[in-house]
Design a protein around this nucleic acid. Structure first.
Lengths: 339, 339
DNA sequence: ATGAAAGCGCTAACAG
DNA sequence: CTGTTAGCGCTTTCAT
């Protein structure tokens, strides 16, 4: 019953020409007589022909599909990914770029060792032309696996260990500077930092940018309390900061969640935000809006970065460029009420 | 530079056997001498061979990939999809089923007419064995497009117009009954409904179940105010209900968001929840937890349904079954504080 | 400008 | 149990 899908051969017979000619018309190659083009096109119409992608991929070694791989680990990984609006922004950026070029974005999850192997295998042998990777963990093994499978790959955010791979990333240093400048401009005189774990490059760079901006304004190095990107750790860090430096009037937290934790502690202690203590976060995640008060924060142009990531891969797949490149994007300050 | 990937031929030469034998080993076919198996396996190891999926798909007409298509419309569609934890649950269910069978789940977005065509084309000609569709709109044209492209398809939720297609769905009627029984058990005497737009089958069935349970308990039909699944519409409906029936002591809202809107209005008017008015929602979405008070609500077993959807497709792809089936799942009441 | 023919890498009869 | 032989549907020289 499952009537075979029409092939190039069927169309050729219907149109009274050769397979090669039909192929040329389908692929928009010049050098085909206009009248024959019409003939072929109507035959395609009549037969309802669609090119078989597997056959085409076999000979061209191109599929027109690009894998967007969300890589991480843990139970119900996809569920957690979907809870985070960040990925939605990435997907929007990528889809926007690819769709405009009639490339097919396919989203893959690499949530376990087995899944990673499946995914590498999938994309490594003829099911996608390349991979865009968004890693949740800094020590993600996936990029290396992809690279050694010779899959054209571009990463969102630079990997922990330097690898010969293209990526897009935020200029975290500039982000830290932006935060410092905001606090300075508000007239804060005793600023402090709730920092990130020191093994994260992004965190280190945010801090460096913050420090340098302070130094340039002739200020002392700020006290730093370390957090681990969670609400609780932000609250704890804020408590420690307040204990050692009761006069702080400005805080830069390395992400919004920690900034929110800081706000909670400050409010409990009766400090008004931003009048007594101004708070600047990082990321412009959803908590930045729901936080009381709404957070002034440093935002990444995620959609733009994602589109650029797709563009980088496109170049690479088309062979236009081979040496890896890193594209750095400028953060922007989003001013709300907290600073 | 781009050294060709090793082929079956290379492995065969390396192992001193024929392509067919290597193929048999790779595909785990019996009837191969164990010693030769080892020979071949080590040759595969040495050459780093991976089967070319395009070539394999061309002859077997199977890819081992299954498309999970999220279909809807609008700007930044992917972003909105990612904001909704519901999809994360669907993905988890599907991925869980497929991964266990080494099938590759690929997530596709169909956010516009052009995207729908691309997606149908992608999955219709050799890039996936079938499609699992989650539609956001009730009048989604995608299922019909897939069906007429002869793509094995299973839907999450029954389509508006009856079509010859398998699907999984919630027993919405039972869900409505659950809500009514909870309100009745609490001793509510004057219950009302914040309903869904009447063109939605799910909404109609929830209402019918609710009504029938009431009737079975000898109660009158409840007053119904219609909403459109938004917070505001829930608030408005609650206001109308209160105006016409000031003595209501129980409300069933057709989804959690409207229930939240109702709660806001009730609290503003000084009604205590659940003491004065008990509220039951539907979906067990994230707002059910963040709502003040947390909502008692009717939950769908989404992961289970998603896994079953994948199973249905699997059957269909393997040709085990051809006539479409509908699998109905039982909802469960999640008791929190609002009722 | 068009057609003939040679494969892309793989699986699946069919022999042996 | 193993090898030989046809293709799967398409693109792409190479002739014409």
């Amino acid at each position: 019953m499952n009537r075979q899908a029409p092939t190039l051969e069927d169309v050729a017979r219907e149109a009274g020409v050769s397979r090669a000619t039909v192929s040329r018309v389908v692929n928009g190659v010049r050098n085909v007589d206009p009248s024959i083009q019409d003939l072929v096109r109507s035959a395609i119409e009549r037969t309802g022909y669609t090119p078989n992608r597997a056959a085409r991929a076999l000979v061209t070694r191109r599929t027109g599909a690009v894998a967007l791989i969300v890589s991480g680990a843990g139970d119900a990984f996809a569920g957690r990914v979907f809870a985070d609006p960040f990925f939605g922004r990435v997907v929007n950026g990528v889809v926007g770029y690819l769709r405009a070029r009639t490339m097919q974005p396919v989203l893959l999850f690499a949530e376990s060792e087995a899944a990673r192997r499946q995914v590498v295998d999938y994309v490594g042998q003829g099911s996608a032309d390349g991979a865009l990777v968004v890693s949740v963990q800094p020590d993600d093994p996936l990029p290396d696996m992809l690279l050694s499978a010779r899959v054209p790959t571009v990463l969102f955010a630079r990997p922990a260990r330097t690898a010969p791979v293209s990526c897009v990333d935020l200029d975290h240093y500039a982000g830290g500077r932006l935060a410092a400048e905001r606090l300075l401009a508000r007239g804060c005189r005793r600023v402090a930092v709730i920092g990130a774990p020191p093994d994260l490059r992004a965190g280190r760079e945010r801090l460096a940018g913050f420090r340098d901006a302070l130094a340039r304004a002739g200020r002392d190095g700020p006290p730093v309390a370390e957090g681990v990107f969670t609400l609780d750790s932000g609250a704890t860090a804020m408590g420690a900061l307040l204990r050692d430096h009761p006069a702080v009037d400005g805080v830069f937290a390395a992400n919004d969640l920690m900034a929110q934790g800081a706000c909670q502690v400050l409010r409990e202690l009766g400090r008004r935000i931003p009048q007594d203590v101004a708070v600047v976060g990082f990321d412009d995640s959803s908590v930045a809006v729901t936080c009381r008060p709404p957070l002034t924060t440093v935002r990444q142009p995620v959609e733009e970065m994602a589109a650029a990531m797709a563009g980088l891969l496109d170049e690479q797949v088309r062979g236009a460029r081979s040496e890896p490149r890193t594209l750095l994007f400028a953060p922007e300050l989003v001013v709300r009420e907290s600073a």
